Amino acid sequence: MYPHLNAIGINNIDLIEKYTVRTEGDADVLKVYYARGKGELFARSEKFKYPRQKKRVVVDGGTNTYSNTTEIAPSLRFIVEELDKVVGAEAVEADVKKKILTELRHLEKVVANKIAEIEEDLKKL
């Protein structure tokens, strides 16, 4: 019924609670969250990375000026369509401010971890 989800190893569709898609560098990261089982403290999740598709598009046809752009991979697009059917409208975040703040907090953690890693490398020198 869901061939693209089955292809990435997601077979138990009924346990999916929500999903997120975010862009990190030249890749899109899909994270699928599953419902908590009885007695579990944390919800289980799986993360999948998909490289962004690179394209050259004409910016100005008169001067033959091109620009490099990226877009979501077709396989990820099909997976997201199937996840939308499974999760329904619940996955749509109406509050854009909340989504931006969530992404900002995640970015802060990533940058803080990278800074700590670089500082450790400097101490070794």
Rank of each mutant, 00 (worst) to 15 (best):
Y2P: 08
P3D: 00
H4N: 14
N6W: 03
I8D: 07
I8S: 04
G9V: 07
I10R: 15
N12R: 15
N12L: 04
I13P: 06
I16V: 14
I16Y: 05
K18Q: 11
K18C: 03
Y19P: 09
E24S: 13
G25D: 02
D26Y: 08
K31F: 00
K31A: 07
V32P: 04
V32G: 05
A35F: 02
R36H: 04
R36I: 06
R36T: 09
G39S: 03
G39A: 04
E40F: 10
F42Y: 10
A43E: 05
R44H: 09
S45E: 05
S45L: 05
S45M: 13
K47N: 07
K49C: 10
Y50V: 06
R52W: 01
Q53W: 12
Q53S: 12
K54D: 01
K54V: 06
K55T: 06
K55V: 11
R56I: 01
V57K: 15
V59S: 06
V59I: 15
N64H: 13
T65G: 02
Y66G: 03
T69Q: 13
T70D: 13
E71A: 09
I79D: 11
I79T: 11
E81A: 14
E81S: 15
E90L: 12
K98S: 13
K99Q: 06
K99G: 01
T102N: 02
E103R: 09
H106K: 12
L107R: 10
L107A: 07
K109I: 02
N113K: 12
N113P: 00
I115K: 08
A116W: 00
E119Q: 15
L125K: 15
